[in-house]
Design a protein around this nucleic acid. Structure first.
Lengths: 247, 247
DNA sequence: CAGTGGTCTAGACCACATC
DNA sequence: ATGTGGTCTAGACCACTGG
């Protein structure tokens, strides 16, 4: 039985992909907030008038992208940067040399408004000179500074962001963005290079000027692959490293 | 209808996972060589006396780990480092700053036998002092040296590897390992740091002594997560970077 | 216990590749 | 025309969670 729209061969898209797109649109709209359960597979099957198996494939595809998390016996939940460590620090790749697990503390240095450089504008799909918010913060492991981040955000999406508010917030930065501004960081593209520490960075990180640092440039994307954050992290890799899995 | 072995609740494993394990064992045995097609889903379903859908889930799981590649209308193929660019350079994360696609040429410097250091022994699950083969090679982009690799292999797995044979081989190093020694590189774990160029590396890469280099330590695994390669790459990131996608 | 996601099956049909 | 993987359905049953 086919009750949903049929699709002849040219530019064919499977039903479950169409369902997936509908679900993604609802997620983008905020119909189900982060951390909450989406309707059950049966309920969604009725809503879209397809079989449960088709909804299942659509949800599987969303789960593969970490947009939702399935929990057997409980339901399917919109993923979030707010809850346990594993989702709080989903994008954090810095580890200790000695293998001990440790999650860093964040210390905010300053928040200012500025204008997008041409490089940042290109990355964030803004016009050069558009207003941006620039944060600097340090990640500390065991009290020692390890990463200096400069974070650039489109001002239009983060109206009213101030140092005071961020300092008062308890939780990760992405959790803050998610709960206070409804901006959800879904995936990111990073470019890594080795650079020499400049005097300012060296002072903040307790490094020598000229010491090699790992530079991590990140563009973070939300629904529809819209870029919403640019950041550059400078990491001192004396006692830490950046981890990656290839497959 | 359930014709295959049933499985009561304690330490339950789904049928398709058992099938997946059987398929992986056959892959490890070399029953179907890299690049070749495995039997059709229907044939496998009959062989294991399960439904086609169950075989499908097992193969889907293998495909998700890139152990096989599905090609609609043609079959399912054992993945390889030998064929097109995309699989030849599956593990290569170095890109040009200007965004142009380019695949590097490899220039082998030397091949020698040696003894495993304690660090290498730990990574490769050998005993300190076990015999290893050590290669050094340079990756060149547009004729310019960009990466200096030191590659350590357990001698027991690569008997008869010589510089002459490797120089004569046309194709990537992993393709060489796969076709000549039956050692298949399936996944890898990398640790990245920024370091200062020593005099030797600097000379080879055309860098200044002390210039920051990206150090990429890699342990590569084959079936059963057995480590079969340790390498350290030193990359000059003036005109190139290491790319990574987070999700 | 009821409700959720997870597995397994059987069969029909579609899209793609090859002959 | 045939054979491959890909989609979709419907129904049965299993495993996990929470009241």
């Amino acid at each position: 039985m086919r009750t949903a729209a049929s699709n002849k061969s040219p530019s064919f898209q499977p039903l479950y992909m169409q369902i997936k797109a509908l679900l993604m649109a609802s997620l983008d709209d905020g119909e189900w907030p982060p951390g909450e359960a989406i309707p059950s597979e049966m309920a969604l099957a009725q809503r879209f008038r397809v079989s449960q198996g088709t909804v299942r494939k659509a949800i599987d595809a969303l789960a593969a992208q970490s947009l939702v998390i399935r929990r057997q016996g409980k339901g399917t939940f919109v993923s979030t940067h707010t809850e346990e460590k594993t989702s709080l620090f989903r994008f954090l790749r810095i580890r200790r040399n000695d293998g001990r697990d440790e999650y860093p503390a964040s210390r905010l240095l300053d928040v200012r408004r500025g204008k997008a450089s041409s490089e940042v504008a290109r990355s964030l799909e803004l016009k050069t000179g558009d207003t941006v918010i620039v944060l600097r913060r340090v990640l500390e492991y065991g009290g020692q500074p390890v990463v200096l981040d400069e974070i650039v955000l489109p001002a239009a999406l983060f109206k009213g962001l101030t140092k005071t508010k961020l300092d008062a917030y308890r939780g990760s930065m992405y959790s803050f963005f998610e709960t206070q501004f409804g901006v959800r960081m879904l995936k990111a593209q990073e470019k890594l290079r080795a650079v020499s520490a400049d005097a300012i960075s060296a002072a903040i990180l307790g490094a020598r000027t000229g010491e090699p640092l790992l530079a991590v440039d990140r563009v973070t994307l939300t629904y529809g692959d819209r870029p919403v954050e640019w950041r550059r992290g400078l990491c001192i890799t004396r006692h830490h490293f950046y981890v990656n899995e290839l497959s």
